[in-house]
Amino acid sequence: MLELRLLQGSLLKKVLEAIKDLVTDANFDCSATGFSLQAMDSSHVALVALLLRAEGFEHYRCDRNLSMGMNLNNMSKMLKCAGNDDIITIKADDGGDTVTFMFESPNQDKISDFEMKLMDIDSEHLGIPETEYEAIIRMPSQEFARICRDLSTIGDTVVISASKEGVKFSTKGDIGSANVVCRQNTSVDKPEDATVIEIQQPVSLTFALRYMNSFTKATPLSNTVTVSMSNELPVVVEYKIAEMGYIRFYLAPKIEE
């Protein structure tokens, strides 16, 4: 038996909007730790890892570990039927082939339940080691989204180069080229507006902008984004989900042939 009650139901709605275009079907894993997901896009270039910790739920009951295969587009359709202020409860029976999403309006005058069919998904789980990254950039998530969107109008790939001087985003296309440099800036009124660059050594990696733009669909989840890079490793683009966990996107770099 599984029963997870999330007071801030809008968080789950935002999580689905952030991942449903990248991944079609995925297994949600439920354990004593929390509600989590790891899935790759169909071409195995990008990976998304989600964790919503048990402590972040108002009520969290998970009698035994359960993996529930869901079509994310269908799940998104159901969650769109929940109001932004609704409380969302996820319910499932051990060994059942459905999951129920229950939506309660804030003043309890409307209660809906939507039952969705589960599916068997043969998904591959990758082991991602804890890594000390050579460059870690924390910046306002809206600024990062803006840069990715702007550059994708010029080119298909972005070179992200981080050094002590700052982080440079560069692209080239048929019509020309573009560079955006962000310098460390901690003299801001609100800490979430800061750009903080931690560098062990300079890093420069090339990525497909299409994926970066897809990751920025998680922007409504967090005011800040953290981009962690090491030479010759996938980048990690992380959005923290307040008091609950995170959504991390990993993207394999483009390599010289």
Partner: peptide, 14 residues
Amino acid sequence: HSAQASMKSFFKSK
């Protein structure tokens, strides 16, 4: 010319 690397060339299956 650059080629797109796969996630599986960096991380092993569990």
